[in-house]
């Protein structure tokens, strides 16, 4: 594929001009197009991290599959966690078109070299967390992802179209879980409120640090990988969930939330970014647990993958011989 710069090492000015032209015209860059190395690297990092987040994100919810309190909820939860595996696969495939293998991405993940969304380093001690993850975490993810359907890199945008389409049920099922709990017994209502209290701030932090502290954002926006700033998306999300929380009969744990007529948005309080960076650095509640589970699945599966590869090699040899 055409990822090499010209032999002299100098950037091909014509190719760069063509690339800029495509971006400016809001067309898509496709895998075989020439692209600046920094664009390729940024995409590999972002898409693989996004894929890792889906894969690690299976665990906090997978934690409740065997204990789901009704068979209907068990089926829904299984289908949802399965979608996350699928979405991880779509994203890894998109990243692979940029010249990184699945094996390498997996290695980066299980050796702790690659990052993934910090939100999945929190525990899910309560069934209501299945509701909060769907409503708040998937809700925030959807806000982030819908603009990514128009990302300038074709395979990424296409993966996101499929993902967004499939995820449309994820947020709703979470909302429904919370609604049933909120309107259920006193214990159930308390379970729901306690869970929303825990997930509110981490969900808001999913949009990334405030724009002023987000050094890579400007370049990503220029390349049309990113379409809206972190703070814009966060505001959009808050504006969505405040009225939804009223329908749920639950409160959001931020006394500063208040409608601001002048701005036409809800005001909300400062987030504790120290906590965000702590989790990001690996000092979250479940970082080591999440990685270990992934590592173990990968290691325990090695003999299976090798067996299937050996069988395939043997079969194709026999087919050649006959």
């Amino acid at each position: 594929m055409a990822r090499e710069e010209t032999e002299s090492g100098a950037i091909d000015q014509d190719a760069l001009a063509r690339f800029d032209e495509i971006i400016a015209a809001d067309e898509r860059i496709e895998p075989t197009d020439w692209m600046p190395e920094a664009y390729r690297k940024t995409l590999i990092r972002q898409i693989s991290q996004h894929g890792h987040s889906e894969i690690i994100g299976m665990q906090p919810e997978g934690n409740w599959i065997t204990r789901a309190p009704s068979l209907k909820r068990k089926a829904i939860l299984m289908a949802k966690v399965q979608d996350e595996a699928g979405h991880g696969l779509y994203l890894y495939s998109a990243a692979q078109t940029l010249g990184i293998t699945r094996d390498k991405m997996t290695e980066d993940l299980i050796t702790g070299k690659a990052k993934y969304s910090s939100i999945f380093n929190y525990h899910t001690p309560s069934w209501a967390d299945m509701g909060s993850i769907g409503w708040l975490v998937d809700g925030a993810a959807i806000c982030n992802q819908v603009p990514l359907c128009r990302a300038s890199y074709g395979p990424y945008g296409r993966a996101m179209v499929r993902i967004c389409k499939e995820e449309s049920f994820h947020q709703r099922q979470g909302f429904e879980i919370l609604l049933h709990l909120s309107r259920g017994t006193k214990e159930q209502h308390e379970m729901a409120q306690e869970s929303v209290n825990r997930w509110y701030a981490p969900a808001l932090m999913m949009f990334g640090p405030p724009d002023a502290d987000s050094p890579n954002s400007a370049q990503s926006m220029a390349w049309k990988i990113k379409r809206f700033s972190n703070d814009d998306l966060r505001q959009r999300f808050v504006d969505m969930i405040v009225p939804q929380s009223e329908v749920l009969g639950l409160t959001l744990p931020d006394p500063a939330i208040k409608w601001n007529e002048k701005r036409g948005h809800y005001d909300f309080g400062e987030l504790d970014w120290d906590e965000f960076y702590e989790v990001l650095k690996g000092r979250g509640p479940a970082n080591s647990i999440r990685l270990e589970r992934r590592r173990k699945a990968h290691e325990d599966g090695a003999w299976v993958r090798e067996a299937a590869a050996a069988y395939a090699a043997r079969e194709s040899e026999q087919a050649m011989a006959s």
Binding site: K74, V81, A85
Partner: peptide, 27 residues
């Protein structure tokens, strides 16, 4: 259902979950 996020490869996670969902439907 236990196998979710524990299968030898991601494609197999998806496959086993499909089977689990079918069985749950029959149940």
């Amino acid at each position: 259902g236990w196998w979710v996020a524990r299968a030898p490869e991601l494609e197999e996670d998806v496959a086993l979950t499909n089977i689990a969902l079918d069985q749950l439907g029959h149940a």
